[in-house]
Amino acid sequence: MSSDTVFRIDELRKEFGGLVAVDDLSFDLQDDEILGLIGPNGSGKSTVFNCIMGIYDVTGGSVQFRDTDITKLDTHDIVNRGIARVSQESNPIPSSTVGENIDLFTYPNDIFSLTGGASQAEILDIARRFDLDEKLDTLPGSLPHADVRRLEIAKALATEPEMLLLDEPFAGMNQAEIRELSDQIRDIHAEGRPIIIVDHNMKGLMSIVDRVVVINSGQKIAEGSPEEIANDETVQKAYLAGAEVTN
């Protein structure tokens, strides 16, 4: 079955003063794949996400989603077009419960709308997917780390995205939690959502992703299937040079 390119970045460039964080980077995303974006710490992965999501203004290049140029759009516009992103750092609303957090993320972007958003049943469903259904009245501050991360994904899903960006979703999780989360990510993907996952650790990604793009110092240094990348010498060198170890 043929797939289409649903998302693309072209010659994306981001400079901070004299520092080039993203260096004319290009890659695309097919509508049926999970893409892994890997690289050592400091290689610019999160910066790429920030550029895509409109948190940073890009210095050059473009971001295309479904043939629309979204490079200069505000974050909320990008989210409303269907791209949701889970950050590396968790960002819950501290004084709202799990249920209220998810609820907030379903609200329409309408200043005149006093009510709206998902029904309580729908929120329950979202929470259940991530085993948070019994913690709906808990405050994020009382949740264990893994639950906080799951809440982040639940919130992203609550915005009814067509595409997801996941930044280091497995960070701080043990093997069992990683396996469980991988299944949940596959389920989300199976519902028809392409996903880009950023990580610095290949092993966690190997089993999920269909394809890998490797970046270092803001540049693409390799691209291919997980097996190809695992054996790629340039990649290994980059990781060793950056004092990272792939197991």
Binding site: T75, N91, P92, I93, P94, L104, N109, T159
Partner: peptide, 28 residues
Amino acid sequence: QSNIGRILRAIGENEAAIESSGIDTTRF
């Protein structure tokens, strides 16, 4: 007490998070 108020209070707690929920925080 409505959604609008909840959004405003959430902006007060974590504006970046609300922006990434699809809410135009400046307009609110």
